[in-house]
């Protein structure tokens, strides 16, 4: 893998608020803080996983990074350039470098276009190929790279199965030679046997083309398999971030712990595990997040301090940040026990 120590992607204090309109005049009466002050960076050639429950803002983060949604505030550096400050042709140049693969391969392909147009359209638009003939050659090449049969390029999306469609979506994302690809729940809608095919394909493409991924998923085992670093999101905030080992082996945030223990184990012997933490209640609404630490309403460790005071990000070990009042003690205790 081409890993050097340069950050390809750097997100700083990213915010995305959605206005809540109300009243007859449709004035803004409130805000949904879908993404609230999120910062992270991804090194070139690495994979960062972003996990969290639905509504925690992980997809919004991805979409805002690519400016598919207009950011409310923050900066997003691509190779040192703040893409949020670019516009017009400048931005267009950067659009080819960053691509996204969506969750649902059924709704993200235009049913009226043949596959070669779906994949090739962007190549012509961005002048990556000079003419249609060149485009077709590149489409064929991409299709075989993604495990599709080039002779099926004339077919329409409905003639393909879910897994094949996801391969088409991946080929489309790769058509403009991107360096950074966001996979937004890219394997969640697929069957188990197809899921592993697509994960392997993503890994192979990464090795071949030196791609950098942001892998957004709610499936912890998939994230653990594919990622180098992991961020855990809760209600619009990253509550814990670090390398894969740090998150999965010495996690310090109670939410991360609950999330990991809630994931059903693959081993029938481990059922009836009495150590399992079952969180009470549901995810609070991001329109009206709890005061202080946002997790305090469901946290088994919550004290009065938690509802009053917003915890700061605390670096428990190099590169491992936790947003919790008890992070330091918890981490020290764990280190002692080991």
């Amino acid at each position: 893998m081409t890993t050097d120590n340069k950050n390809l992607i750097e997100v700083r204090n990213l915010k995305k608020y959605f206005p809540i309109k109300g009243g007859i005049l449709q004035t803004t009466v409130g805000q949904v803080k879908a993404v609230d002050d999120v910062s992270f960076s991804i090194k070139k050639g690495q994979v960062m996983g972003l996990v969290g429950e639905s509504g925690c803002g992980k997809s919004t983060t991805g979409r805002t990074m690519l400016q598919l949604l207009k950011p409310t505030a923050g900066e997003m550096f691509y190779d040192g350039v703040d893409t949020f400050k670019l516009s017009g042709n400048e931005l267009k140049k950067y659009r080819t470098k960053m691509q996204i693969v969506f969750q649902d391969p059924y709704s993200s392909l235009n049913p009226r276009l043949p596959i070669y147009d779906i994949i090739g359209e962007a190549m012509l638009e961005h002048n990556i190929v000079a003419n249609r003939e060149e485009m077709m050659n590149k489409v064929f090449e991409l299709m075989s790279k993604c495990g599709l049969f080039p002779e099926q390029a004339g077919r329409y999306p409905h003639q393909f199965s879910g897994g094949q469609r996801q391969r088409i979506c991946i080929a489309r994302a790769l058509a403009v030679d991107p360096e950074f690809v966001i996979c937004d729940e890219a394997v969640s809608a697929l069957d188990v046997s197809i899921q592993s095919q697509i994960i392997n394909l993503l890994k192979d493409l990464q090795d071949d083309m030196g791609l950098t991924y942001l892998f957004i998923s709610h499936d912890l085992s998939v994230v653990k398999f594919i990622s180098d670093s992991v961020g855990v999101m809760y209600l619009g905030e990253i509550v814990e971030i670090g390398s894969k080992e740090q998150i999965f082996e010495h996690f310090a945030h109670p939410y991360t712990e609950a999330l990991l223990s809630a994931a059903p184990s693959f081993d029938p012997r481990k059922r009836n595990n009495s150590n399992r933490i079952i969180l009470q209640g549901d995810l609070p609404s991001p329109a009206n997040p709890p005061s202080g630490c946002r997790f305090h309403t469901r946290c088994p460790l919550a004290t009065a301090k938690c509802s009053g005071e917003v915890p700061a990000k605390y670096e428990v070990e190099p590169g491992h940040f936790v947003q919790c009042h008890f992070a330091k003690e918890r981490f020290a205790k764990r280190a002692e026990n080991n």
């Binding site: 199965s161 897994g163 094949q164 069957d191 188990v192 046997s193 197809i194 899921q195 592993s196 095919q197 994960i199 392997n200 890994k203 912890l220 085992s221 998939v222 653990k224 398999f225 594919i226 999965f248 994931a263 184990s265 693959f266």
Partner: peptide, 22 residues
């Protein structure tokens, strides 16, 4: 099916795959 699932404890670099489609 069992082999193709990334287990929380797998560390290998590739997943075992059932080729083809349903």
């Amino acid at each position: 099916l069992i082999a193709s699932r990334p287990d929380m404890n797998t560390s290998s670099n590739r997943l075992t795959v059932i080729p083809g489609n349903v």
